[in-house]
Design a protein around this nucleic acid. Structure first.
Length: 289
DNA sequence: TTCCAGGGGTAGA
DNA sequence: TCTACCCATGGA
């Protein structure tokens, strides 16, 4: 069963800018072959697996849904909500664009209508993936994530959705070992068990009820989430106050702002101080060339 | 062999 | 709050 919809975004919006906003479009169960269509497999609350094809539309996105089960109202609503969340269709970034318009190094971002960050349907998936980016290379992040999806995700025509917390929590020792996640396995296992048991409600953090400081503190209570990961996840949640200091940020800010001298976390924040609560976006979409 | 990659936990000060 | 030291994995 195939159905198509067009979803309209808060303006300004550009589908390709969100699609390529960071590395997530290269991580399963997203699939991007650079043809302009972003594929994604999604497991709905009732277990139904759907394939989503996302493509550019005027001020929005064309969504093609392929499902083995009928798309009654609840399923369709769940899919639409997931897509709106993933692409940040309802984000209002006018304040960021106003700041960016005054900065030559952000003119390109403004012209490209960049600013939104691609998100996963669940915060669980974003937290898992962020932990998989820590202290490793991007190549390994992709490989670890792929093994996780292929081993524990539920499939449709060979492709698989991102595994649920319950699926991770139920995996045995041998399965975890075969995933070759290094010491991160223990973090993901504990996370999955807490979420699956209802002891940790990650989805509740999407509501925006917490102040940024409290949100960061809450995220850092998760083992495996430190300053860098918390700042990254906060940005995914629309809180851009802090810049996550990883090796890339250290290198870029050091070379472009501090003459190649080693930089502290405070110096990285200071370099983008004038962007206030949009520091992360200014840093992320900065034209470093 | 050693280092380190989109870091983080822990102990000890 | 700051500093060592440790942590699995795989590529350079």
């Amino acid at each position: 069963m195939i159905e198509t919809l067009t979803l309209i975004a808060d303006s300004p919006f550009d589908f390709h800018a969100v699609r390529t906003s960071h590395g997530w479009h290269r991580l399963a169960p997203f699939h991007d072959d650079d043809s302009g269509v972003l594929l994604r497999w999604l497991q709905l609350a009732d277990g139904t697996i759907v394939r989503l094809d996302l493509a550019e539309a005027p001020n929005g996105v064309h969504l093609t849904i392929e499902s083995s089960a009928p798309l009654h109202g609840d399923r369709r609503a769940e899919i639409v909500a997931a897509v709106r969340w993933m692409l940040g269709l309802d984000l209002d970034l006018r304040e960021f664009y106003a700041l960016a318009a005054e900065e030559p190094r952000l003119r390109q971002a403004v012209a490209q209508r960049a600013g939104r960050l691609l998100r996963s349907p669940t915060l669980f998936e974003d937290v898992v993936k962020t932990i998989l980016t820590t202290n490793t290379t991007w190549a390994q992040t992709k490989a670890m994530n792929r093994r996780l999806v292929e081993t524990l995700g539920v499939g449709l025509d060979g492709a698989r959705a991102f595994p649920t917390p319950a699926a991770l929590a139920a995996a045995d020792e041998g399965t975890w070992s075969a995933l070759r996640l290094g010491y991160r396995a223990a973090y993901l296992r504990e996370l999955a068990e807490r979420v699956a048991a209802g002891a940790l409600d990650l989805e509740a953090l999407k509501t925006g009820d917490l102040e940024t400081r409290a949100l960061i503190a809450e995220l850092k209570r998760i083992k495996g989430i430190g300053d860098y990961a918390a700042a990254t996840i906060a940005a995914i949640l629309g809180r851009y106050d802090r810049i996550g200091m990883d090796s890339i940020a250290r290198d870029l800010v050091s070379r472009h702002f501090y003459g190649g001298e080693p930089v502290t976390p405070a110096q990285i924040q200071a370099a983008f101080e004038r962007f206030g609560s949009y520091r992360f976006l200014a840093y992320w979409f900065w034209d470093w060339d």
